[in-house]
């Protein structure tokens, strides 16, 4: 057990826990844009930075990203010191200059009382805040179909060579976890298109409702040893089937008993 303080309150955590996890467990609201429990913390957005110090540091303190700073005995964490708030505001300010139309950024800005950006608004700034969640989740799921491309201010997220990605299965995890909903995909009656590639979606053999893509189902079937037939019926019809199957069994026992 590790013991340390957050905003003066003594807390306990397990060895290896990250500060942010404990901070949120304590119900303290520290913002972040690039954090997701499923993947390794990356420290890209810098919003979750906190100020830390120790008794023996003699008044000296430093700023760390709480999402990837492991808890330490005797640490004294301040989540909303004046400097930390200044830093968060600056980051939000910079975000606002780059992504003026993002509702998520506007929400964050109003939360921190940033009404307008101090900086020059970046021409043709889109809503991708380069948090890298999509690429990290994609890699973690074993696809690595997309990655960050280039560097510096012009960095972007794209499939290799910006062509339709062969490793993508159309699972949509990238789009579903994008904090600013920037990753677009379109659905058709029997297909969906993302990253410039169109995937066939499976339709329930009974009601016709579309479920996941054939590529994704086949991938799961192959790598996870799940019968492909499971994917050919939607969850609603699966439940109905289950009821019917069990109904037959119950009815049979009724008849036998009668």
């Amino acid at each position: 057990m590790i013991k340390f303080t957050i905003n003066g309150k003594l807390v306990q955590a397990d060895q290896g826990d990250m500060l942010l996890t404990v901070i949120r467990r304590e119900g303290i609201d520290v913002p972040s844009q690039c954090h997701h429990q499923a993947v390794e913390p990356s420290g890209a957005c810098r919003l979750c930075m906190v100020e830390i110090t120790r008794q023996e540091w003699d008044g000296w303190s430093k700023f760390v990203t709480s999402c990837l700073y492991p808890v330490e005995d005797g640490l004294m964490v301040t989540t909303h010191s004046a400097k930390v708030i200044q830093l968060r505001k600056t980051i939000i300010d910079l975000y606002l200059a780059r992504h003026p139309n993002s509702t998520e950024i506007m929400r964050l800005a109003s939360e921190y009382g940033v009404t307008r950006t101090t900086y020059e608004t970046v021409a043709d700034g889109d809503d991708c805040i380069m948090c890298g969640l999509c690429t990290r989740i994609c890699a973690h799921m074993g696809f690595s179909a997309i990655s960050t491309v280039g560097r510096g201010h012009d960095k972007e997220i794209a499939p290799p060579l910006k062509e339709a990605p062969t490793d993508c299965t159309g699972c949509l995890s990238c789009a579903n976890n994008c904090p600013t909903n920037f990753i677009e995909f379109t659905r058709d009656s029997n297909s969906l298109t993302i990253w410039g590639r169109t995937f066939e979606t499976l339709a329930c053999s009974q009601c016709g409702k579309t479920t996941i893509t054939r590529d994704f189902a086949e991938h799961l079937s192959k790598t996870r040893d799940i019968p492909i037939a499971y994917f050919e019926v939607c969850d609603d019809c699966h439940r109905k089937e289950t009821a019917k199957t069990m109904g037959r069994v119950v009815n049979w026992t009724r008849e036998v008993q009668a």
Binding site: Q37, M141, C234, D236, H238, R239, K240
Partner: peptide
């Protein structure tokens, strides 16, 4: 289901043969 870990790929919803993972 650890909601914090879930990436919403819908694999479980599609895979459950009893239709008991739900969106």
């Amino acid at each position: 289901l650890n909601r914090e870990m879930c990436v919403m790929c819908m694999a479980c919803v599609a895979a459950c043969p009893f239709g008991c993972a739900l969106l």
